[in-house]
């Protein structure tokens, strides 16, 4: 890698990127408010004080909803390349010294910040709820939900390069909800039959959810979850990189 690989990367980029996210009401609702609302709906229903692992069902649901918010946030941050391509902004950037890899890096950094904000908001609301788990588990699960959501930053980038739409999140929002059901984020896998459970384990949301909840439940499916997260990160990352190379090639 030469010194010019990340040429042009700077804090102003990140600052303005974050301002844009906050300015966009739809993104703010999707990534900051919706996970909280879902947690309030599912997390306060009957039987949530039942014990799960080191904590209770409310804590289990809290982690799942934080994962969901982090996923949405990271996907939205990555998928914003779609809008920027449609607006001709990517082309405009080629008339500046900004290196293409620096642009992608800024997108990943902004995904990290927005996803961290989303997790923080859900967990803050969680502290006022009936959620119970050891203090260290609060931090471990939050950190895992945040870090693992980068699978979806890669997913968002890939989709952003793949789909030409200006409103790519309108398609990806429902898609992520479906993937969350498929991956056992909204409904525990124990409620599924054997066939659906087997399918769930190869879908991209499964690994993130399992990993983030592991410090709470310790249920021994760690290796499968790690393989799942790494594999999907590679699939989406390589897909995004291929589309990105095609997009920035001089023809």
């Amino acid at each position: 890698m030469s010194s010019s690989t990340f040429r042009g990367l700077n804090p102003t980029m990140l600052e303005i990127e974050l301002r844009r996210v906050l300015r966009n009401k739809r993104t703010a609702i999707f990534t900051l408010i919706m996970p909280v609302v879902l947690f309030e709906v599912f997390g306060s229903s009957q039987g949530t004080s039942d014990k799960v692992g080191d904590g209770n069902v409310t804590a289990y649901i809290l982690i799942s909803m934080a994962v969901y918010g982090a996923m949405l946030a990271a996907t939205a941050a990555g998928a914003s390349v779609s809008l920027e391509r449609a607006a001709g902004w990517s082309r405009q950037l080629r008339l500046t010294p900004l290196a293409p890899a620096a642009y992608i890096t800024a997108k990943v950094l902004s995904a990290l910040v927005i996803s961290a904000t989303s997790v923080a908001v859900v967990y803050l609301v969680g502290t006022t709820s009936k959620a119970q788990m050891p203090t260290s588990t609060w931090f471990q699960t939050a950190l895992l939900a945040w870090v693992c959501s980068m699978v979806f930053a890669a997913f968002g980038l890939f989709m952003g390069y793949l789909l030409p739409s200006e409103n790519v999140m309108q398609a990806l929002g429902p898609g992520l909800a479906l993937m969350s059901f498929a991956g056992g984020l909204f409904i525990p896998l124990s409620q599924y039959n054997d066939v659906f459970r087997a399918i769930a384990k190869v879908t991209p949301v499964y690994g993130v959810g399992e990993l983030a909840r592991y410090p709470l439940v310790h249920d021994g499916r760690l290796a499968g979850a790690i393989v799942n997260v790494v594999t999907w990160t590679l699939v989406f990352g390589i897909g995004a990189a291929m589309r990105f190379r095609r997009d920035t090639a001089r023809v």
Partner: peptide, 24 residues
Amino acid sequence: MQSGGLLKDLTVRETVRLTASFFP
């Protein structure tokens, strides 16, 4: 350029600031 190349959700000043941030 003839068209495009602008982000509608930035202000005029932010657009110039952002562009300036790429140049040494």
